[in-house]
Amino acid sequence: MKRCIRPDRPCAHLALWLLLWLAAPAWAAAPVSGTLGATGSDTMASLVLRWGEALTARHPGINVQFQAGGSSIAPSALVAGTTRLAPMSRPMSPEEREQFQRRYGYAPVELRVARDALVVVVHRHNPLKALTLSTLDAIFSTTRACGAPAPVSRWEELLPTGDWPYGRIALHGRNLASGTHDLFRQRALCGGHFRDDISEYPGSAAVVAAVGESPRAMGYTGYHHLTPMVQPLGLIDAAGETIMPTPETIQNGEYPLSRYLYLYVNVAPGEALPPAERAFIELIMSEQGQRIVRAAGFVPLPADELEPLS
């Protein structure tokens, strides 16, 4: 007998999803159409695009447009009314929430749609395997708010025994507009300030490409951007234990830099969402949607957090 070799999913599920996949055209019979615009996090771009592809496969009448630029674009686009759906890789700040409230008189609806993590990456042959959070802060910040005694700027300070890599740690990160930049500042820098000689890239893929090419480099990026060009560093917690970023540690929140990914929706209380938007959210919260989350390289929500659309 042949065996289904999806280690994480029994055969029955596979069959069920195959069935649903084949049944997709039947759903499309209900003519849901319209334009669905979303503006926001480029970390989530690949995810939103894949959801969009699946949604268009389900409902050929729906037109998905996505403008990626960074999570900070999302609230201003929501407030300015240039979009109705705003995927963000960080929660809205109180000020952004208040701005929205002032403009519309109600709060935006916040949906948690997936889990993700920030990973610190180095060149694939780098002998460094793990860092403590305070050393990480000492490397990336000028403020050292997490309590490191002195700044760390050279590889010799991290790897006293090795002679490779040698020299200054070349730091790579994201641009100011991205949620990744913001979250890393909050979580890894304890709210401090970045050094000003960090190379800033307008996309996470560029960070990975840059780190993968240079042995002296260290950077931070989203979990789903990991490629074999780079190796993720484990983080050492207070108890001295190394936690590697894996789907399990990210899903249960053990990995310190893990986070939720959000979708903010501008909908007045009591008002029904347009059908296209509704279908989109239904898709995300379905098991197919969460399967896409995994295919896109993110981590699905824990099963008990899949909230049905109300």
Binding site: G203, A205, A206, V208, A209, H225, T227, G297
Partner: peptide, 23 residues
């Protein structure tokens, strides 16, 4: 409607795509 553009597509796949090697 928004539209796609070759030049921007190039920039986007090179900088934002999630698998650089494939892109």
């Amino acid at each position: 409607r928004k539209f796609m553009h070759l030049g921007y597509h190039l920039f986007d796949t090179a900088f934002h795509g999630d698998d650089v090697e494939a892109a």
